[in-house]
Nucleic acid binder design. Structure first.
Lengths: 310, 310
DNA sequence: TGAGGGCATAAGCTGGGGTTATGTGCAGGG
DNA sequence: CCCTGCACATAACCCCAGCTTATGCCCTCA
């Protein structure tokens, strides 16, 4: 029992307070008192007191300053609370998505969406929709453009979202935003220090880390580089966007990915965008519906929330 | 016990699997088998099996497809896993930050940083540092520029980070990135539909929702608008960036915030950036150290990770 | 000075998640 | 053709984190 902790990764779950504790901390920050926070979260005051205290023990930092007139965050507590808020927001997105995924057939709004949109954009929209029209039960089915089209035409979905160059036959649609494919590399990669923009021909000639042939991203890229000599043999072909990102960060080769997929990595500077000259790698994000049947009711509400997505 | 559930918010924690379960799911996705995932996370196979199963029950969705030769994610499972990854990443940032906050005096690297940088950028850098130089214990103190300067000059910190227009006296520094203040409004606000850029004078004449006077953001904004007639009386003055964001989303007034603070909201389209003509609202993000003492060792490692932050 | 708001402590209960032990089903080699 | 190996499931039991109720202390304010 001693020689077998190969990947020593002592779980995050042991070092990070659980969601309930983080939510409680946010409530304390908002309401200025343990007791009020406890009531807001539906537990008793001693429970809140003990939970906050054990969180402080776990983190080794005093988070709230107790006084006989209430509790305020310490400086460290304010910082921790901000970080906690990010975790809770991610959990809210998870919840919104998961709830839609479970959504039974009796949902008031049935959405079919491409993977990229379902993954990166829908949870946020669903949270906004929930805020604006609480009680709208949404169900979600994710699949590629043809699956989305099939669902809509078969009456099994009320609203669809696709990305790509054209609207599937039988559907009407409206552009709700742009997705740009961007060239990314690790900050350590030489391209990150270029002063001149990359040319399309250079990009085409460089072996990249890519999603497997057949993915939407790959198709757009192939098409765009066709007139520049075509894509070089990939250095590595991987099945998931996540795997590609990880490989780009560690291996020393660049990739081309949806900007939706790398927003986080760019701001955290784990990846760097490499500007390319003379290459249009945009693709439209569209909401779609069966020709003639303009969205109404909940579908219209959701559509309203999505217009102009970057 | 029936009339007092005012804010009915049945905790997220009851609907979202806890971090341990999410980490386990990621391991299953990566390793392709419950047993291997269990080993990787340091638990037994039955524990993993039961945990995944209870997560499926909780979410009401089948996540993995079991077979006698291993387990693969279902389509829904892949989506859930992607959402889970976001939660886990936020938790990693939390952990990195919290660990630095606790950091004892014997840390190998003592960092002093402005609130904005500590909140939005440092956790990512610390994760990167941990990946690159595991075992570098970091301690963090957050405060405004003068606190940072004081710590550095007093020998209580090895490296500092400040945002603002100038380097505090007695310190050397290097620009590691730009922070832009941007005008944001709710998508429902008329400004979101403008076709022409806002002018500085228009902005100055409009009552905004702002941080209280004295915040760094507020100072930069005041200075920039001084030559355009000065800032109009704020509609609302709030103590935290979070409160400002919430108010902008719900109230119908715009605000001016650091782009670091609103990245999330922009991509989720809860807020919209309003372009302004003829106004430079940039401010430099700088790493700083006592004059003459160029960072070495761990401080140099961290500095290397921060260069070129957007 | 008494009342009330706010936090802490104590004692006891419960359930989720862990462990060990064991069973079932499928694949592939001798 | 059967046996071994691997992967997952089930069962029985244990433990502790987090909840509750009950109570006490401290401070403020009318």
């Amino acid at each position: 029992m001693s020689a077998e902790d190969e990947s020593v990764a002592v779980s995050l779950a042991h070092r990070v307070p659980d969601l309930g504790a983080l939510e409680l901390l946010l409530a304390v920050a908002r309401l200025g008192s343990l007791g009020r926070a406890a009531r807001a979260r539906g537990i008793t005051q001693p429970a809140a007191s003990s939970r906050i205290r054990s969180m402080e023990r776990q983190l080794g930092v005093a988070l709230v300053e107790r006084s006989p007139r209430g509790s305020r965050l310490t400086d460290a507590g304010a910082l921790v609370t901000d970080w906690a808020r990010r975790v809770v927001e991610a959990a809210e997105a998870f919840d919104a998505g998961a709830q839609a995924l479970r959504g039974r057939r009796d949902s008031r709004l049935r959405v079919a969406a491409s993977m990229t949109i379902a993954e990166y954009l829908l949870p946020g929209w669903l949270i906004a929709l929930r805020a604006q029209r609480p009680g709208t039960a949404v169900s979600l089915l994710a699949g590629n453009s043809s699956v989305v089209a099939e669902r809509l035409l078969g009456g099994a979905a009320d609203l669809g979202f696709v990305e790509g160059l054209e609207v599937p036959a039988g559907l009407d649609g409206t552009v709700i935003g742009q997705d740009r494919l961007i060239v990314v590399a690790a900050p350590s990669h030489p391209w990150s220090r270029r002063r001149t923009e990359l040319t399309a021909a250079e990009l085409a000639a460089t072996p990249l880390i890519l999603r497997e042939r057949g993915s939407g991203t790959r198709q757009v890229l192939d098409a765009a580089l066709a007139r520049h000599g075509g894509l070089a043999e990939p250095l590595l072909e991987l099945a998931s966007t996540t795997a590609v990102k990880a490989a780009v960060v560690s291996e020393a080769a660049p990739s081309v990915l949806s900007e939706l997929a790398v927003g986080e990595e760019l701001t955290a500077r784990r990846l760097v965008e490499i500007p390319v000259r003379g290459l249009r790698l945009g693709r439209e994000l569209r909401a779609v519906w069966p020709t003639g049947q303009r969205p109404a009711g909940p579908a219209r509400d959701l559509l309203g929330l999505t217009r102009g997505t970057p």
